[in-house]
Design a protein around this nucleic acid. Structure first.
Lengths: 345, 345
DNA sequence: TTTATTTACGCAAACGATACCGGGAATGAT
DNA sequence: ATCATTCCCGGTATCGTTTGCGTAAATAAA
């Protein structure tokens, strides 16, 4: 069952020409007579000829495809990023091959090998929350595979990176809670090894410090799967709430963490923001319709995807090895809604 | 800037063998001596040799990649479907190339050409809400490109199809509203030319008829962009609410329609379900946390994607032309929540 | 010892497109 | 008439891999 396309050979045979002549006529070479050109072009158009990209890839040693590795496609942030990548890739004649790690390092490694074996021209990636060993990525980097990191970056590898200002996002969110009267703010963070985690946690701590609130280590809990598993968020909440001084506000450092905190609160009939306020990183479209409407730090995901794709394609198409790398830092947007409304005393 | 992989030629040169011997050794052919095999395999393992898939594609006339065409990646239903497709594809050594139509027919056509020019071995697709002209799809079908439809199918093209029981989903949802005491139920549907639209609308009508409620044509409104644009849902709501006999319940036939109805109600301070009840098709994970919690008809999206991918791969790998096609119809799940709670009289 | 058979490998073509190299024919110059 | 130039076009190698065919050497059978 195949979808047989017409080749340059077929055209050559029908018109009694050589394949090289046909090839040149199609590429509008000057050394082909106008009549021959016209004949070839007319026939090619008639037969709807399209060059075989696979043959081209083999000859040119490039596949015109880029790999994208994310934790999970069915996650609004990542799907919005992919959306952006896809649009830029399509414009530039690249296709996008997607792989997911499911926050699992073994899957991440196999996905990277998979993408490499598929001869992608470059890879855009955000590491899994489990990853502490970057050796495979490092190897690909050393073998000159063009890489662009976004969101969860690896500091030790010198290449283009696209993130939001995670520090400022968390800082502003924490400050917003403080301004609204909250005095014992907890933070539920993603896996500690992630770049975004330390940036966000540092923003949280800095805001506390700046406001003369003491940072209490017991108020900082990590979720190693980024909230992907409800139970880890549940455990985090239980741990926070068993303290004598229960926190009166929470900042969630990942989409699923934030929403799972809401789910937990609903189950346990904890009122937001009366019993505990909530703000968190999220890229869901519906946060304004939640009960209560959810305050969020939102990343410009589509924009990040576009930018990452542009940087990658530029790197792929660069003649000389790229040595100056950009770290694009986009602003995060804060939406203040009911879940972090001013504390009633 | 290239990522140069080791080839069979490199191995042959180093070991002083011919490429054919190396190739056969790697494929464990019987006509290679055990010693030679061992030497080749050891070296290949050491150098982390992987066959070049592009060269293979050229020779075998297959690319081991499948195309997926959806309206929009950043849509929970479609991203869940892609998730399912990706997992099955990966298991079977296929990669997934994604394209989106953005509910636009011109983009859909160009995306299909794009996928074909990329030599995908088959395509899984859900047509755009704008599409009324299936000629391009028909052409690909006639050229023996393996196709599998899901969700929004094309009846006139004989191939595998995967959908949920849209009729029953809408029927049950409508009946649920009726049982809860609603007497003037409106339906906001997707574009009328879509298969899912007529199936869902028929389910809605059948439930009304079975319950001896008269179907009122003024209570059925279509959204040509599937609710992708807020304004069209707003227009639909205005049209429904300007009637003398305002509807007391709404069934939304697409994810974005349903959520945009909620958004409209919130803006206009229309209480759900007191002023108007709501149930709708949606695959969002958070519908239980909305205000009010939203009753939904949910499609088993991941399952649909897996099934579509399995059917497609089976078709691609079939020796003889496939002539018997399956139409897999999965059950839709109904979640009854507050937005369609029993009417208070 | 001669012949037949097996073993183990190399050669070359093929997949589709490109590009370098080269060459025949027509024209112009001397 | 001879040589050079220009115009058009064909031959062929190449990318990495597989595979049918051919064959030398080794072994087995006669």
């Amino acid at each position: 069952m195949k979808f047989e396309a017409i080749t340059i050979k077929d055209i050559a045979k029908v018109l009694g020409l050589s394949t090289s002549t046909v090839s040149r006529a199609l590429r509008d070479s000057y050394e082909i007579s106008p009549e021959t050109k016209e004949k070839v072009l007319a026939y090619a158009r008639e037969m709807n000829y399209r060059p075989n990209p696979i043959a081209l890839s083999l000859k040119e040693k490039r596949s015109s495809s880029i790999g994208v590795l994310v934790a999970e496609i069915a996650n609004s942030f990542f799907s919005q990023v992919i959306n952006g990548i896809e649009s830029v890739a399509q414009e530039n004649g690249y296709n996008v091959i997607i792989a997911q790690s499911k926050e699992n390092h073994a899957k991440e490694v196999s996905a990277l090998h998979y993408l490499a074996s598929r001869s992608v021209d470059g890879i855009i990636l955000s590491v899994s929350s489990e990853t502490t060993d970057f050796s495979v990525i490092q190897q690909m980097y050393e073998k000159k595979m063009p890489l662009v990191f976004f969101d969860r970056i690896v500091d030790s590898i010198q290449t283009h990176k696209v993130t939001v200002d995670n520090f400022k996002g968390a800082y502003d969110a924490t400050l917003h809670l403080i301004k609204n009267g909250y005095k014992n703010i907890a933070c539920i963070a993603n896996a500690p090894q992630l770049s975004i985690t330390s940036e966000r946690v540092n923003g949280y701590k800095a805001a506390l410090e700046k406001s003369k609130q003491r940072f209490n280590p017991a108020n900082l809990v990590y979720c190693n799967h980024g909230g992907l598993i409800y139970e880890e968020v549940e455990a985090a909440m239980k741990q926070l709430l068993k303290q004598k001084q229960k926190p009166d506000a929470i900042i969630g450092c990942a989409d699923k963490i934030t929403t799972n905190v809401m789910r937990y609160a609903q189950k346990k009939r904890i009122a937001i923001p009366t019993d505990i306020a909530l703000i968190g990183f999220s890229n869901l479209d519906l946060t304004d319709l939640l009960s209560p409407s959810l305050s969020v730090v939102r990343q410009p995901a589509g924009e990040m995807g576009k930018m990452a794709a542009e940087l990658l394609i530029k790197m792929i198409e660069s003649k000389r090895p790229v040595s100056e790398f950009q770290h694009a830092v986009l602003p995060a947007e804060i939406f203040q809604r009911s879940s972090s409304a001013a504390k009633k005393i």
